[in-house]
Design a binder for these strands. Structure first.
Length: 301
DNA sequence: CATACGTCCTGCCAGC
DNA sequence: TGCTGGCAGGACGTAT
């Protein structure tokens, strides 16, 4: 659930807390949240097999390589929080559904970290807990030389100045998928999850199942504008808390009341008062106004 | 190659 | 009251 705005909010808060600090010790309590960057990513079973074959002990996770290194800064790539170390190796945190990074002034996980999976002690006191109820999240240690390839697996940053309407239009043209599926594809555009995809499409008045390659230039420009506006405003509000997302300072996000369609089945559309509907495709819920976001008639498609 | 679908994981909540 | 079953979904593996 943490998407770009949540990852951005967390990385800003964590940067204040971590920049200049040195990692003393990394304790892995739940080995399954640690992805080994050196191995082909695989499903749980697959990764287990790889690690056994390679003789990788669970704690050798690679995260231990961070011990003794100073944190230069904390940033973000897509939905990932990226801890940049002084030697330009990185700890990349994908928060999955329920992952949280909770700083603590003491040497124990904060009380809110009830499902602490990884615990990072800092020299001179203080710590950061990686807490994740469902353990869909992953922590990876990415050495400096692997970073370009790692980052290249992701599409462009939607808030970067280089992400123009024209760029979005080209991405849309490249796929016959429903636009919501394309927006969720991290290889095409980085950082968008279901909430902001659904919200952007409501603002742009486009049906989530509209085929990406059927966008007019005008509709592409409109989606580009709505997408960026929604992401920016969500960052300003420090993200959306639906379940358990918290900022680095332990606050819930404030974007919930700004949601127009997501999760509001049956509520009147704020634009036209028609009842918001829920549909399911690609294994996920989408919410839309059947009036404002109508699919064009089949003859036009 | 591109697209579609199943899988993992557990807290929560509706329904009986 | 207590149990069950369905639901949430990011990202990867497998199937088409």
């Amino acid at each position: 659930m943490p998407e770009l705005p949540e990852a951005e909010t967390i990385s800003r808060g964590l940067d204040v807390f971590l920049a200049g600090r040195t990692v003393a010790r990394v304790t892995v309590l739940r080995p399954d949240v640690v992805a080994n960057a050196g191995l082909r990513a695989a499903g749980r079973a697959g990764r287990k097999r790889c690690e056994e074959a390679a003789g990788v002990a669970r704690s050798a996770s690679g995260l231990a390589a961070a011990e003794g290194k100073r944190v230069r800064a904390v940033g973000r790539r897509g939905k990932n929080v990226v801890v940049l170390l002084d030697d330009e190796d990185r700890i990349v945190v994908n928060l999955g559904m329920t992952g949280r990074l909770l700083p603590s002034p003491g040497s124990r996980p904060p009380p809110s970290a009830r499902h602490c999976a990884v615990f990072v002690h800092l020299e001179g006191g203080g710590a950061v807990a990686y807490d994740d109820v469902r353990r869909f999240g992953r922590l990876s240690y990415v050495p400096r030389r692997d970073w370009p390839a790692w980052s290249a697996r992701l599409g462009p940053e939607p808030l970067a100045p280089s992400f123009t309407a024209r760029r979005l239009q080209r991405i849309l043209e490249s796929s016959k998928s429903p636009v919501r599926s394309l927006l969720l594809d991290q290889r095409k555009i980085a950082g968008i999850g279901n909430i902001y995809a659904v919200e952007s499409l409501w603002h742009a008045a486009v049906h989530p199942m509209r085929r990406a390659n059927e966008f007019s230039a005008r509709a592409a420009v409109r989606l580009h504008r709505c997408l960026r506006r929604v992401l920016r405003e969500a960052i300003r509000a420090q993200g959306t808390t639906l379940r358990n997302y918290l900022t680095a300072s332990g606050q819930p996000g404030g974007f919930g009341p700004a949601l127009r369609a997501y999760g509001s089945v049956g509520n009147p559309c704020p634009r036209c008062a028609a009842a918001i509907e829920r549909i399911v495709f690609g294994g996920r819920s989408a919410f839309l106004c059947p009036h404002c976001q109508a699919l064009p008639p089949a003859a036009d498609r």
